[in-house]
Design a protein around this nucleic acid. Structure first.
Lengths: 238, 238
DNA sequence: GCAGAAGCTGCGGGATCGCGCAAGACGGGC
DNA sequence: GCCCGTCTTGCGCGATCCCGCAGCTTCTGC
């Protein structure tokens, strides 16, 4: 069994290496990459390796890397080891995991034992292990209990990118009015109407305010925006 | 000499502890805090201590912590040790550093030696040490060479929060037209007008697009937005 | 088959935004 | 004093946004 570690922080990388060696004695080779691009390359060269990776990396995002790796080899087992449980990350991951694939999501704040347990569960028992805190988010966001529909999330991203109503309607193949309907829906759910005072003039620009509260609630974050921007540029060309 | 370490990642904290002990043999006490709030408390209790701190922490932001520490004791020497050189952080720091205070900004990607050298320079020689990469940003952003005026940055934050033109005019004591002037200025500098294609209909909503590119260029980031939101809520009450 | 819910669409109107045009205020260099 | 660049403000227009109203389709349960 080979394990590929993709993590840009040298300290964390060393720690992971340590943890893998001690939790998986049957592992006979640990490979390290310090960014997503290199990780993809090494994953291609070692096509039987299981993977542990960070989500937030400077060079190339973990989600991007995981996507291409899974595209080439959907049965790859990946354990995501991340600092954050932002809804943006959780949504990003569950959007790309292939059907039936075994994967895990463990927070860096988890204990030693929990990490090692997750390593064994995924790579030996091929079970999914998702941190409790993250799991809660998944339920909420995908079970659409006080959460967001895909449609709503989609339009949130679109306005966050700065697209016009008209541009969105073209991109998503909707009428202008439908786009505006979804926007209203979004404004409702984000509770953007708070005048925040009894005074009427402290009002918000709903569109930008929605983006702001989405960021503050971590529905969006930098890497989600970055990905969305790339996709949009792609669409603009085609 | 006492050193206070404020850093939420246990691995990095241990590493810092190691580095401090080896670089500063004259140090006779290392105190650790794992979030900003606790850091402020310990700084108050140990009012001769020098400080090494992370900027991005979950509980309480490093910039916030540094601000209150410096407010109580402006001659405190602080070394910021951060993962990122986002313009938002750099601007945030240089905004709060008191006149004549000795401080430092070192990236976590820097080598062992560089960190230790910075520790000695600041805490023994009381010299400012700023990472080259960060320094470049400072020059650009404060020397307003292709950078942003305070006025422009201010209005950028205001629209990012989702305020109306009118609301901004009240908050900043400007006429409505002046606000719009500054916005135009901002749109210019952020180069928001890129139709991105020869086609005219792929157009952007300038206001939200400006926020998007500011985020992508790291002029803004989560913690800057968070701070700004808190300030705005304060203002809304008053 | 039919009632009800949910989503898409067009119409229309009031509010806001983006911005050109132009007049005044302030400061610096000659 | 005079000219010039920067900053502020007012006016006005066209484009966009926000949204209530109403008609249409699709889906679901009985």
């Amino acid at each position: 069994m080979k394990i590929l570690i993709i993590e840009d922080d040298p300290l964390h990388r060393a720690y992971l290496h340590e943890a893998v060696s001690s939790a998986l004695p049957e592992c006979d080779g640990v490979i390290e990459a310090d960014n997503g691009t290199e990780g993809e390359l090494l994953a291609r060269q070692n096509d039987s390796a299981h993977i542990v990776m960070d989500l937030q990396m400077n060079q190339r995002n973990g989600i991007e890397a995981a996507r291409t790796i899974w595209k080439e080899r959907p049965e790859t087992r990946i354990l995501f080891w991340s600092n954050y449980s932002d809804e943006a990350y959780v949504r990003g991951v569950s959007r790309i995991v292939p059907d039936g694939a075994a994967y895990g999501y463990v927070l860096k704040s988890a204990s030693d034992e929990r990490l090692k347990l997750a390593l064994r569960s995924i790579f030996v028992e091929s079970q999914c292990v998702i941190d409790r805190e993250v799991r809660g988010l998944q339920q909420k966001s995908l079970g659409r209990l006080s959460g967001f529909t895909d449609a709503e999330y989609e339009i949130l991203v679109d306005i966050a990118l700065g697209l016009t109503d008209r541009a969105i309607s073209k991109r998503r193949h909707l009428s202008l009015r439908s786009v505006q309907n979804r926007l209203q829906q979004l404004y409702d759910k984000l509770d953007v109407y708070q005048t925040a005072g009894e005074d009427d003039d402290g009002r918000f620009n709903l569109r930008t305010r929605a983006v702001a509260v989405a960021f503050l609630r971590k529905l969006l974050n930098y890497s989600a925006l970055e990905r969305a921007e790339a996709e949009m540029q792609e669409w603009l060309k085609g």
